Computed example of a mutant assay.
Amino acid sequence: MKIIVSKNFSPSRAWEALDIANFDGTSVRLHWTDQPYRWHINDGEEVFVVLDGVVEMHYRERGEVHKVMLSVGDIFFASVGTEHVAHPQGAARVLVIEKEDSV
């Protein structure tokens, strides 16, 4: 059993992660960041949950860039092949559930 108080997770660098669980090839990780990630396409599906802060998620559909602002409790689901990049607006903590060893 684990109990994690996400607001207490404050690593030394952006996108550093705390591994929470790994099951059936799926990883569950808590990330802290105050910097954008990079444009990427995951090896599988991804669930991205904002736990603290605000994140502007950019994603491409048919070559066009779209943006959505995600607040605490909001969830972004990236289906296979969805190119995306997270831009935190200040510090943010996010829960990411994805295929183990995904980008």
Rank of each mutant, 00 (worst) to 15 (best):
F76P: 00
F23T: 13
S27A: 10
V68K: 14
D101E: 14
S10G: 03
A17W: 10
V72H: 13
W39G: 03
K2R: 14
R60I: 08
I3G: 05
I20E: 03
R60W: 11
S12E: 15
V85C: 15
G53S: 03
G63T: 07
V50F: 12
N22V: 03
V103A: 06
E100S: 11
V55E: 15
F9P: 10
T82I: 10
V68L: 10
G90S: 07
E83F: 05
M57W: 07
Q89Y: 02
V50K: 07
S10I: 08
A78D: 06
E56M: 11
L51K: 05
G25K: 13
E16F: 10
R13K: 13
I41S: 02
V94P: 14
K2T: 02
G25P: 09
D101H: 14
Q35K: 14
D101N: 14
L95W: 06
H84I: 00
F48T: 00
I97Q: 03
Q35H: 09
S12L: 09
N42H: 15
D43C: 04
I97H: 10
N22A: 09
E64L: 10
T82H: 04
K7F: 02
E98C: 00
D19K: 11
E61R: 05
L95S: 08
P36T: 02
V103K: 14
A92G: 04
D43W: 00
V28A: 11
V65T: 14
F76W: 09
R60A: 01
E46L: 06
E83L: 05
G44C: 03
L95N: 05
S79L: 13
E16S: 04
M1L: 03
S27V: 09
